[in-house]
């Protein structure tokens, strides 16, 4: 009896599966450690969780006590699904006994719509993009069965920065996940990127006197250069080297353990 209580105190339940967690872990951390894939774009283990892309949105069933909903801002009269609440798995601490829905048709439909939003707000032209096949946005779209952008395109005009000798910044493809922002600050020990602006005008800026990459201290070996989940930050010296059919997501599934390293070093298949 006591042992059982002990177990329950240290597990969460995702789609019927009991998953252990340690104090301090988020739902995403616990799922990741157990090999359960929750779709995400702005998250990378080892970097501060961000919670902005909202692809990892999951539903947690409410406890019987209604206290958790009573103070939510103006929500009481208009809850879409009163018996559960929506959270980001990457930023929400795991807590004993959480009953979580993740891989359900309804949630994957939500994720598909969010992915479509990301596609149509930028200029994503997969066939001509070097990142095609290595692109996490594209892979997530395939994973969720997304067949079109669905919404009218925004066709924003965004600046390209080709000033740097080895790195290229194409803001057309930026999805504002801030992985490069965090990687530069937290891993590279620099501070090359930031987000400026507001709403749909939000955009990636470079922290240098001219605002150009060439004037920043960015180097090819920086994690910030390699971490981009889309084709917004690309290395100039090499391009289209790996043939279609041999690219990351031709060979790997999104939820594979250790995939981060594979995506970061995308040219390792060259001689295979």
């Amino acid at each position: 009896m006591e042992a059982k209580a002990e177990t329950a105190a240290n597990t969460i339940n995702i789609d019927g599966q009991e998953i252990p967690f340690e104090h301090g872990q988020t739902i995403m951390d616990a799922a990741f450690a157990a090999g359960v894939y929750i779709p995400h774009l702005c998250h990378r283990p080892g970097l501060t969780p961000h919670g902005s892309c909202k692809l990892c949105t999951v539903d947690i069933r409410n406890r019987i006590s209604a206290s958790s909903t009573s103070d939510r801002r103006r929500q009481t009269k208009f809850t879409v699904d009163a018996d559960s609440r929506s959270v980001s798995a990457c930023t929400t601490p795991a807590a004993a006994g959480q009953q979580i829905s993740s891989n359900t048709p309804a949630l994957n439909e939500v994720r598909k719509t969010i992915t479509q939003m990301l596609f149509i707000e930028g200029n994503h032209l997969c066939p001509s993009c070097e990142k095609s096949g290595d692109c996490t946005l594209q892979a997530v779209a395939y994973h969720l069965g997304m067949l079109d952008g669905h919404f009218p395109q925004f066709f924003p005009r965004r600046e390209v920065d080709a000033s740097h000798p080895t790195v290229m910044l194409d803001r057309d493809r930026c999805i504002l996940c801030e992985l490069c922002v965090r990687a530069s600050r937290e891993v590279d020990g620099k501070n090359v990127f930031a987000i400026a602006g507001r709403g749909t005008a939000a955009h990636l800026i470079v922290n240098s006197p001219s605002g150009k990459l060439a004037d920043s201290d960015l180097e090819t070996g920086d994690m910030a250069v390699h971490i981009c989940p889309v084709g917004a930050i690309l290395i100039k010296e090499q391009g289209y080297e790996v043939p279609i059919g041999r690219r990351t997501f031709d060979l790997h599934h999104l939820g594979e353990a250790g995939l981060e390293k594979v995506v970061l070093a995308k040219t390792v298949y060259r001689d295979e």
């Binding site: 902005s52 892309c53 939003m117 149509i120 709403g199 749909t200 939000a202």
Partner: peptide, 16 residues
């Protein structure tokens, strides 16, 4: 749409 801060996808794109 004017006041969305642009942080999360549903609000940034959805309000527009």
């Amino acid at each position: 749409a004017h006041e969305s801060c642009g942080f999360c996808t549903p609000c940034r794109v959805g309000t527009t």
